[in-house]
Design a protein around this nucleic acid. Structure first.
Length: 427
RNA sequence: GUGGGCGUAGCUCAGGUGGUUAGAGCGUCAGGUUGUGGCCCUGAAGGCCGGGGGUUCAAGUCCCCUCGCUCACCCCA
């Protein structure tokens, strides 16, 4: 018999992991909902042209896309990120401005899998389309920051930069290219290749031989237009005003081509791997226009869910909800009473599980204990004959009681009111 | 895509220099308790030792290939 496993770079989420993933969304929704963002659920598949705008020179577009021709002859792709989809949806439906949206869902990139870098990975993120106001930048960044903090993460650094306006960025790129080519001989092999495709990315190089050349490279701030410099300055003072700490780094050049002006990244100090960027984003004032819409400024961020959860693990933060059920019904008389009672209790709003398969009382009690239930309701021959149930309290020292079967619903409610667990984070 | 490390039970891992029926803990199941979980005790089930090929009388162990995970590069979330 052949068996199967998940495709490389893709994972199953079971039980506690799935519950934690769900709680992650809940935590995110709480933060973005409080700021007036509405949800958008774009399709996972789009015309490949939607994603080309991310940047022909980036690996994400040029060699990592899951793309194919569908049965109707359309060239489509699994989304590698969601910003482009949100902009496409904006152009298609034209919601009122400012359009503030959040999303959560899977993206696909055909990379060599690694911890914190999967081929199918989830991102949560927000986008704001419309205002060019630097306060929007501040709001977006602060929401990302506050969300990570709400998970209990403390070892996070916000790195900030401005790429200037498109013309600034173009001149800067050129200057960096010239500078690097002047020192070509001393540049690492890798960086020489990168230089061909995307000179700015060389500034990200971590190789030691590149360090002196990068240190001597032109600096972005010398290329900012007055407007871009002013915008960035207001972003920084806005962050200061609300107590979000940041570090400016002229070398922060994010991969996607569409960024201009403000760019930022959230880095975890708890992850010393190369995958320490939990999320990031920036302004993409030209993207909507590129997708056939009216010139509309935009800014947003995306946070990698798996990666952030790994950071939570190493900081022992965000353990996720405790699962389980309130009541467990044990029935050694064949199960028909368990069927009736558990259904009745569920219809009354309780969470309840039960034993199946006519297993021994001991086995069913064990299952009751594992279920996390506060209360086991036992039905054996005696109870059946006398029209009662035995209530056994699993988490305290309250002695077990005999209840009239007809009173079970009410008495369960009473018992659980006394034994409320301290905090049930389950949504 | 390139290079390194690692793949033994559901999980975490032992298995000097090749040697006969591959082990432990946890978990699961059953029993100790004529109807009672958690602690304890006993027992059982559960492994094509990632897959394929080779060397050898003999391979979990050595060699080659391959797949997967992982680390670095790359890329990025």
């Amino acid at each position: 018999m052949t068996s199967f496993r998940t495709s490389p770079g893709m994972r199953d989420l079971l039980g506690d992991e799935a519950a934690r993933r769900r709680a992650f969304d809940t935590a995110f929704i709480e933060v973005v909902g409080a700021a007036g963002y509405e949800q958008i659920v774009p399709p996972i598949l789009e015309d490949i042209g939607v994603f080309s705008r991310i940047g022909e020179a980036t690996d994400v577009v040029s060699k990592e896309m899951y793309d194919f021709v569908d049965r109707g002859g359309r060239h489509v792709a699994l989304r590698p990120e969601q910003t482009a989809s949100v902009c496409r949806a904006f152009v298609e439906h034209r919601p009122a401005l400012p359009y503030k949206a959040w999303y959560s869902g899977p993206n696909f990139r055909y990379e060599k899998p690694q911890r914190g870098r999967q081929r199918q990975f989830d991102q949560v993120g927000i986008e704001v389309l419309g205002p060019e106001d630097p306060h929007v930048d501040v709001e977006v960044i602060a929401i990302g920051w506050d969300f990570l903090a709400s998970l209990g993460l403390t070892d996070v650094e916000l790195v900030l930069n401005s790429l200037g306006d498109p013309e600034d960025r173009r001149r800067f790129t050129e200057a960096v290219g010239d500078h690097l080519r002047a020192h070509l001989a001393k540049l690492s092999e890798q960086s020489r290749e990168t230089l061909e495709r995307n000179p700015l990315r060389v500034l990200d190089s971590k190789r030691s031989e590149d360090a002196p050349i990068i240190a001597a490279a032109p600096r972005i701030e010398d290329f900012w237009s007055t407007e871009a410099a002013e915008h960035f300055s207001e972003v920084r003072s806005g962050l200061d005003r609300i107590g979000v700490p940041w570090r400016a780094d002229g070398g922060l050049v994010r991969g996607l081509d569409y960024y201009r002006r403000t760019t930022f990244e959230f880095r975890s100090g708890a992850l010393d791997s190369a995958q320490n960027a939990l999320g990031g984003g920036g302004r993409y004032d030209g993207l909507v226009e590129d997708l056939g819409g009216p010139a509309t400024p935009g800014i947003g961020f995306a946070i990698g869910v798996e990666r952030t959860l790994i950071a939570c693990d190493s900081e022992s933060a965000f353990p996720g909800p405790a699962g389980g059920v309130e009541v467990f019904v044990v029935d050694t008389t064949g199960g028909s009473e368990a069927l009736a009672l558990s259904t009745e209790l569920r219809r009354g709003g309780r969470t309840v599980d039960r034993g199946f398969g006519g297993r021994s009382m001991k086995a069913q009690m064990k299952a009751a204990d594992r279920s996390g239930a506060q209360l086991a309701l036992i039905i054996g021959d005696d109870e059946l004959a006398s029209g009662t149930v035995t209530a056994r309290f699993l988490r305290g020292d309250r002695p077990q009681e005999q209840w009239a079967r007809t009173e079970a619903n009410r008495l369960v409610a009473e018992a659980l009111a006394d034994h409320r667990p301290p905090e049930m984070t389950e949504s």
